[in-house]
Design a protein around this nucleic acid. Sequence first.
DNA 1: TGTGTCGTTAACAAAATTGTTAAACAAAAT
DNA 2: ATTTTGTTTAACAATTTTGTTAACGACACA
Lengths: 210, 210
Amino acid sequence: MSSASAQTEELIKEKAKVLFFQKGYLNATTQEIADEAGVNRALIHYYFRSREQMLELLLEEALHDKKKKVVECLSGDEPFREKIAGYIDVVVNFGLTYPYFTNFIISEINRHPDKEQLFCSQNKSKTADLIREQLEEEIKNGKLAPISAEDFIVNLMSLCNYPLLAKPILKTIHGMTDEAYYNFLSERKRTIFITVFGEEPPHSVFTSVS
Amino acid sequence: MSSASAQTEELIKEKAKVLFFQKGYLNATTQEIADEAGVNRALIHYYFRSREQMLELLLEEALHDKKKKVVECLSGDEPFREKIAGYIDVVVNFGLTYPYFTNFIISEINRHPDKEQLFCSQNKSKTADLIREQLEEEIKNGKLAPISAEDFIVNLMSLCNYPLLAKPILKTIHGMTDEAYYNFLSERKRTIFITVFGEEPPHSVFTSVS
DNA sequence: TGTGTCGTTAACAAAATTGTTAAACAAAAT
DNA sequence: ATTTTGTTTAACAATTTTGTTAACGACACA
């Protein structure tokens, strides 16, 4: 495979992700993707066979990328609070780049309910278990107010993901520009931690996106 | 307008809402809507002119419906905590019927950014202001740990809406059936209150949906 | 120089989706 | 009974979107 090929293929994937996951244009047509990438529409079929197959590839890639980061920060032997702070950091940062990624997955699942486990079961259930174990231990040791693992995880995911999913709504509610909202979300990492734990994070573990 | 007419028009709207807002099928075709309602596809154009215009009507109706309930429970002179409990109740109940309503709006805004304020500004900014005022008063009186109105509102909306938006994902993560997830969400109303206020709700103010 | 592979393009074909229209049909009014 | 009005239907037309194909051009290499 020549260099030009790899470049073009990567360019198309990149721009498709921008339309789907960044701009939230869930129904972008092959023509719009081609325009965004500045290439002929037929190339999409040349490289990916069909729009459908390209979508699956994009989802798998982004999902794998996110999962890798999440599992990485939840594994190891750091204290529970540091792990969760890391999770918040990773998930919010990912969402700052691809705010509509979750939205896209949900839409796909609803259109093709048979593919449901493709997106969730193996991937996220492992994540949930990683949190669950250590959470229950913390509660047992009296270091955290009792809460079911289900509720804790849903709280955490809600606080991290919703502000990205609902970006246009929340921006308008608070009268913010794109940039102001971006900053608001970066600052919010601490707030999420405080809301979930009822106390300040151990120390400054939160990063900015590159 | 005859009785048959009103009935058919209402039936189509009803079934369209089911497809769009309940089943999360954001791109349902006119044919699919007609099938769901068991009528001829041309009737959609007869009653609503075009798919686009029908959509706008559905959104306005559902938005008005939700807004009415929300404003109702946030107005008046009840204590802050009772109002917020009422808000949680209303929003979660609405979401149990139309889990993908917010999803749909966000998707529409991204496709037609010019219509953004149509959905948000007048409607929700008023809601936000209703909360903001009383929230700041509570903090001033030392009845609530200091938090910015923006963060409090985003926390509240996140905890209420995300579990509905992300229903298929969360169902799978926790290995729940549709019914189990429904029950989980009903129970969660209390958890949301506790997470936001750090203490139990005043008394049992939460209802079941009819 | 000739040959072949690969990337690219325009033009075409096929499918899906929306919108229109004329006619059939039913119910009510005259 | 017949006209009138409003509802419903099938058939058609237009548009949009996807998928295919044949030809063109560049580059490597014999």
